[in-house]
Structure formats: C-alpha cells, structure tokens
Amino acid sequence: MRRKLYGYGGGALLLLGASVLLALSIGSAGFPPAKVWSILLHQLAPGGAEPPWTALEEAIIVQVRLSRVVLAVLVGACLALAGAGFQGVLRNPLADPYTLGVASGSSIGAAFLILFGLQTFIGMYSIPIVAFGTGVLTLLAVFWLARTQGRLGVETLILSGVVVQAFLSAFVSYMVSLSQGVVNEILFWLMGSLSKRNWGHVSMLVPFVAIGLPVLLYYARALNLFVIGERPAAHLGVRVERTKLIVLLASTLLTAAAVSVSGVIGFVGLVVPHVIRLMVGPDYRLIVPLSAIGGGIYVLWADTLARTLLSPKEIQLGIVTAFIGAPFFGYLLKRRKASI
C-alpha cells in the first residue's frame, strides 16, 4: 500500500507540477516555460538584478494566470475529494458531489442575486458567500428529511437528495425564465466558469481543502470497511453513524465551496474517483489523496482548453469537463470491464 501510494502519488504530483507550468505558459500572450519559471522563482526569492521582463508580463503571470491555475487545481481537488467521499459513504457508483442537491442549493442563491442584480450587495464576493450559504442550508434540509430514528439510511439519503434537487432545480429554472435581459448570466453561472476570478477566490477555497483532505484521509480506512458493509464495519469498531455524518459533511462543504466560487462543474466528482479506482484498486487510502491530485489536473486542463480553444471567447468550463470526461469514462468502462 505504502509503496503504491508513494509511486502513484509522486507521479501524480510531478504531473500536476508539469501541468501547472505548461498551463501558465499557454494563453493569448505566449510565454516560454523558462520565462514562467524565472518569474515564479523571482516571486519566491525576490531581489537580485533587474529582471528581464516587464511589470505587465509579471502581472499577467502572477495576478491573472497563476491565480486562475491555482483556483482550477483547488476546485478540481474539492470536487474529486467530495466525489470520493460520497461514493465511499453512499456505496453507489452513480454518487457524485451533487447527489445530495448541494449544487441546486448553491445555484438558488447565485441565481437569485444575479436575477435581481445584487451581485455586489455585500462586496465583490457576494455570490460565493450567498451560494455557499444556500448550499449548506440545502444539505441541512436533506439531512433532516433523511434522518429516521437517529440514523442516516443510505437509500433514504439518496432519495431525499433527489427530491430536494428536483424541487430546487425547478425553482432555479423558474428564475432563469423570469429574467429576460440577464438569462445568459444565470445560465452561464450554472455551467461553471473560472474567468474573472482572483486570489480572493483562491483564499476562500484553501481552508476547505486544508481541512477536508486530512479529514477524508483520516476516515479512508473506515471507508474501506464500508465497502464490506456497515455492520461488519461496526463489528470492527467503526462508529458507523458518526463516520457517515462527518464524511458527508466534509464532502458537502467541499462541494459547496467549489460550486460557490466556480458555478456547477459537472463530471469531475463522478469520473475522477472512478478513474483512480480503476487504476489503483478499491483502497480509499489511495483513492482519497490521488483523487485530490487527479481532480486538480483534470480541471486545470479543462480550464486551459476552455480559455484557449476559441480564444478570445471562452467556453463554459462545465461543458468542457463533461465533453472530455464522459467519452473518456466510457472508454475506460468498455476497456477494463472492471466492476466499479
């Protein structure tokens, strides 16, 4: 297990580093990777001679591209981690970060603000803050619906999520239909995007990943026992209800955080943990950390394509992730024919 973790983990981190570097040098103003490197190194260790690049070049790399690249990696990590957590607790291959209706919940808040032109009523981060709040409220509603006699049944949870999601989606659609001039803006938010974000958005996600990743890693061994069943897990000393609650809570907060800064980006949380599982097997001690890295790489490349393919126009990120993710997943499914 350890050797596998270091092998795959090291490889994945290298790939992530190379991807970041490459993505930084791709864009409307082209930079050779060497220049990107020296600008980045200069940020870490300033001083020395007069740098051979302009202040504008430095601002593009550091303020615009680097923040967007880091945000893409964090959003991907949040969604893929949440997907692994949901699949671990719900033990359903179709489970993803949006199964419990959090995406619709966050969308309600965002759509409401956009519809009434309130995007900045409490500052530039109004949409993320409100979307996160309504997402968490949705989770509470789902838990309240699903809780019977102090237990959270897996099937009841999924059904409650479906019900709440259907209700809230109808509401969001209604708001979309109400708005005439700004229809596109709500729809675009729903399809997810990382454009016009900044370091402030990055710093909103950092605490969630910094807490969510260790929490899920801590519960990875319990999630392994869930694979053989809740009762056998209980017989080995797992506090089943507490574990389910904490993992679901952590996963949902990660989802709500990601959705509130980036909109609804589909397929990452579903596909990345499955792909990792097909590669390394069912052990959550590997799936959790590798999903975080893999999700980061996946969203990073999807976003790089989204901003460059039809430049200067941007494609919505959610479209790109599904467009690449679905066929790739289908290919893996067909080729491996492994049970997932």
């Binding site: 061994r221 392994n224 026992l225 694979v227 053989i228 069943g229 009762r231 056998p232 017989h235 080995l236 000393g237 797992v238 097997g281 069912p282 052990d283 492994a338 049970s339």
Partner: peptide
C-alpha cells in the same frame, strides 16, 4: 470491544475488488 470480540455473520462478505488478503487485513483495524 472489537479488540477482543469478533462477529461472523450469515451473509458473509460482498463481492468486491479487494483481494482476499486485503479483506483479512481489515480485521486489524481496531
């Protein structure tokens, strides 16, 4: 309790992609 009490149930273990050894190792969890 799990360090000295063990339970063997009737429906056994599900079909998973874990190997036999990995499943037996799970017994060391507590």
């Amino acid at each position: 309790l799990a360090r000295w009490v063990a339970v063997l149930e009737q429906d056994g273990l599900p079909r998973t992609t874990f190997s036999v050894r990995e499943v037996v190792e799970m017994a060391r969890f507590p």
